[in-house]
Design a protein around this nucleic acid. Structure first.
Length: 465
DNA sequence: AGTCCCACTTAGAATTGTGACA
DNA sequence: TGTCACAATTCTAAGTGGGACT
């Protein structure tokens, strides 16, 4: 296969691609009411070895092929049933459920109780509506957050241990943007969230002369991504959590490292409580809220700090945005593994930088000579000082840019900016910022994001989250 | 009250496409 | 005009949370 690709000419490759696109075209769109919508994933997963993330108990299991007979199609009563693409087979079921958005579903062969779905693409109206609702809900939290914070600070002093556990957990969800953390099965990777933290996952650092109360969190979260953070927390949260780590809620026995830190409550309880404050409020809303409000705050600080921010070069404004984005990503613990070949390309960059430094050095000498009218070119002609100066300036500019590039690359090697951009930061904050400070939105959102966030494009430059 | 089921969002890795640069 | 790095897209796993069921 590899060799075949290499042997193909440009035209042949193009033709193969066109044929493939044409064959797929009919699966890529569908009709929803009066709209033509793009379909997201339209293929069942091919058979193969299941990997899973982290230490998954089912790692290496054979993931068998899924047949059309296992697939349920969900379409309108009047819609034509799509032809089954596998010769000699037929769809398992065709239904017409108007309360769900999916077009097809089947059971996951690895985890038979789980379902896999064909949904519409990110730019569809269904997704746009729920995206808008998500961010509006997060904005609404602004009206309730003060009361919620006041209450959990009070809850920390409650006589009721369950109430204190709830208060601590909500504190962590709010201040550290932790996920809720539901119970998990034996046959899944052993990961935790806020409510499923184990005694082992927290270490209480000694209170120093500065009076700071610090806890070191160390656990595997979603996707077995490690969360490692020394966080300063309120004295009362510190003392409560320390207490919870020592003995069970009924006080009957000492806790073991693998015991639940919050053993008297669960994520469901927390969400129940949130409903008392605001309709639809749940733990995950805090991540959206905190990500969005942090982005808004950081952008505001940057622009407030400088006069005529609009006049700044676009590249620098983009760098400012990325810095804010990075802080949000760190808050949400969005990590990536160091890109393959990072060290190698770093070496290359350093090599290039070294050469450029030499070049600048040489040009500086040339400039000195040129000012004295002593610098000559290869043909022995005297070169004007201004000409050398221009060259020197350009080289210095390139050097500056390259140094910045190196710093950014090293800085972001383990940070994933994309996840917060796609899922957490209200796009209207970004769009308003672009409008207010004359930055083309295309510099910040790629083609996919532009179409995903189409619903937000008309927002005012004064939009405030 | 606890468990299960379902539908949806969120996640990083792998794969593929591209454009800048030598 | 090919190479390489990075960006974009695809893939599918792994969360969340509501509600039904027991």
């Amino acid at each position: 296969m590899q060799e075949k690709k290499k042997q193909m000419t440009k035209e042949e490759k193009k033709k193969v691609k066109e044929e493939k696109d044409a064959a797929e075209a009919k699966y890529k769109f569908c009709q929803v009411d009066d709209r033509r919508e793009q379909v997201g994933n339209f293929r069942v997963e091919p058979p193969g070895l299941f990997r899973g993330r982290g230490e998954h108990p089912k790692m290496g299991m054979w993931k068998r092929r899924v047949y059309p007979e296992e697939v349920t199609i969900n379409i309108g009563e009047d819609a034509e049933v799509p032809e089954c693409p596998v010769p000699g087979h037929r769809w398992g079921r065709v239904q017409h459920d108007h309360t769900v958005t999916w077009l097809a579903c089947w059971n996951d062969p690895i985890n038979v109780r789980d379902l896999k779905y064909v949904f519409l693409a990110a730019n569809s109206q269904f997704k746009a509506e729920s995206d808008l609702a998500k961010y509006e809900k997060a904005r609404k939290l602004k009206d309730y957050i003060e009361k919620i914070r006041k209450d959990y600070m009070k809850g920390l002093k409650s006589k009721d241990k369950v109430k204190r556990q709830m208060a601590c957990a909500i504190y962590l969800i709010d201040r550290l943007a932790l996920r809720a953390g539901h119970e998990k099965d034996e046959d899944e990777a052993d990961t935790v969230g806020c409510c499923t933290l184990k005694v082992d996952n927290v270490e209480f650092l000694d209170v120093g002369d500065d009076g700071k109360h610090e806890v070191k969190f160390d656990f595997l979260g979603k996707d077995s991504i490690r969360y490692e953070n020394v966080a300063e927390i309120h004295e009362l949260v510190y003392s409560n959590m320390k207490d919870f780590s020592l003995k069970t809620i009924d006080g009957k026995r000492a806790k073991r490292p693998e015991d639940l830190l919050f053993d008297g409550m669960s994520a469901t309880d927390i969400n129940q409580l949130f409903k008392c404050y605001m309709p639809g409020l749940s733990a995950k809303v805090f991540r959206t809220y905190n990500a969005s409000i942090t982005l808004a705050k950081l952008l505001r600080e940057q622009t407030d700090a400088q006069q005529r921010y609009s006049g700044k070069p676009v590249e620098e404004k983009k760098a400012d945005y990325d810095r804010a984005n990075k802080e949000v990503a760190i808050l949400c613990n969005h990590q990536r593994s160091v890109p393959k070949g990072h060290a190698g390309s770093m070496d290359k960059l350093n090599e290039k930088l070294k050469a450029l430094v030499e070049e600048v050095k040489g040009l500086k000498d040339d400039f000195k000579k040129a000012k004295a009218g002593e610098h000559k070119d290869a043909k022995g002609k005297v070169v004007a000082a201004e000409k050398v100066k221009t060259k020197l300036d350009r080289a210095q500019e390139r050097l500056k840019k390259l140094k910045l590039q190196r710093a950014v690359k090293e800085d972001l090697k383990t940070v994933a900016l994309g996840t917060s951009k796609i899922n957490y930061m209200d796009p209207r904050i970004t769009i308003a910022w672009c409008k207010a400070f004359e930055t083309p939105i295309e510099k910040i959102f790629n083609k996919s994001l532009l179409s995903k966030f189409h619903w937000a494009m008309t927002c005012e430059p004064t939009f405030s989250f």
